[in-house]
Simulated scan of single mutants.
Amino acid sequence: MRSEKGGDEAFGDKSADTIAADAVKATRDAKSLRVSGNARQPGGNEIGIDFHVDEQDRCTGTMTGEGAQADVLQVGQQVYVRGDEKFWRNTLLGKPGTDAVVGKLQGKWVKSEPGKSGTEGMCDKQALLASLDSDKSERKGMKKGGTTEIDGRSALALEKKQPGGEKITMYVATEGEPYILKAVTVGGDAPGEVVLSDFDKKVDVQEPAGGDVVDPEKTAA
């Protein structure tokens, strides 16, 4: 759906590169947001994410990949992961006693620490956003596209074609803060798209009840 407000009207004479830089800064400065989408890894596996994160180490979300799914919570420096059978089998990689351990983990939250949960970066707002801007050269030489709507919000498309046929499109909000509302990569080694929303909204997360939590150190067969 096309909006009535064009990108030139919203951003004046700013270049596409300047708009992109402003969008990255505004998005990083948001106190909280939701990131959802998917990406195909070079090996062919598709990873899906849907996370609400903030700057106070609060996080809740779900990740999928390689036929597995896991729910993730973070409160402060404490991370909890509740994965399905496939997730734990992928994580344990066939170690001795895997069958017994997986049985004990089913339906439970596993207590872990940031960096040791197998969900690295998913609950780190800046790390999540860094993946959108890992190569700053990608947002140099962009061109303005059309104006459209992303989840009901007016957005200007900024586009760039890379050598090898990869195309990057960043959709930037034309009203209010110039947040990135969507980023799409077509072609290349890691195609995918992510949608960003719920900027500055409260991330409501509580630690799971003690009876639903297991200590992985005590689950060895």
Rank of each mutant, 00 (worst) to 15 (best):
150 I>G: 04
103 G>H: 08
188 G>V: 02
97 G>E: 07
140 K>H: 12
47 I>G: 01
107 G>L: 03
199 F>E: 05
145 G>V: 08
193 E>N: 11
198 D>W: 01
79 V>L: 09
199 F>C: 01
59 C>W: 03
125 K>Y: 00
166 E>F: 05
11 F>D: 00
75 V>R: 02
81 V>L: 07
5 K>D: 02
24 V>R: 13
10 A>H: 08
52 H>E: 12
37 G>S: 07
105 L>Q: 03
146 G>V: 09
200 D>P: 00
4 E>S: 12
13 D>A: 11
174 T>S: 13
183 A>E: 08
192 G>T: 10
105 L>P: 01
114 P>G: 08
49 I>W: 00
69 Q>T: 15
124 D>H: 09
215 D>I: 05
69 Q>M: 09
109 W>D: 00
29 D>F: 09
76 G>N: 02
204 D>T: 14
68 A>Y: 03
149 E>M: 15
131 S>P: 04
97 G>Y: 05
121 G>E: 10
36 S>H: 02
113 E>I: 04
166 E>D: 12
28 R>P: 00
176 G>E: 12
21 A>L: 02
38 N>L: 11
139 R>H: 14
86 K>T: 15
16 A>N: 08
170 M>Y: 13
91 T>Q: 14
199 F>I: 02
63 M>E: 06
25 K>V: 11
42 P>G: 12
97 G>S: 08
82 R>W: 00
219 T>K: 11
118 G>A: 10
190 A>R: 15
192 G>Q: 07
113 E>S: 14
84 D>W: 06
69 Q>P: 00
125 K>D: 03
149 E>I: 04
30 A>C: 13
159 E>Y: 09
205 V>N: 02
72 V>K: 01
114 P>W: 10
46 E>W: 10
154 S>M: 05
151 D>C: 03
150 I>R: 09
35 V>C: 04
162 Q>A: 15
1 M>F: 11
173 A>V: 09
75 V>F: 03
53 V>E: 00
147 T>I: 04
5 K>N: 06
181 L>P: 06
28 R>L: 09
187 G>A: 14
90 N>F: 00
184 V>R: 11
191 P>E: 12
8 D>H: 08
186 V>Y: 05
147 T>M: 07
94 G>R: 02
58 R>D: 10
182 K>N: 10
70 A>I: 03
1 M>V: 13
196 L>W: 06
212 D>H: 04
170 M>G: 06
85 E>T: 14
6 G>C: 05
213 V>P: 01
15 S>G: 14
74 Q>W: 05
99 D>Y: 09
193 E>T: 13
49 I>P: 01
178 P>L: 08
195 V>R: 05
119 T>N: 05
84 D>F: 10
107 G>Y: 05
198 D>F: 07
107 G>E: 07
44 G>T: 14
45 N>H: 13
216 P>G: 04
122 M>I: 05
101 V>Q: 07
182 K>A: 07
132 L>A: 11
37 G>T: 00
195 V>L: 10
84 D>A: 06
51 F>A: 02
37 G>I: 00
217 E>R: 09
126 Q>C: 02
74 Q>E: 09
205 V>P: 01
98 T>A: 14
55 E>Q: 14
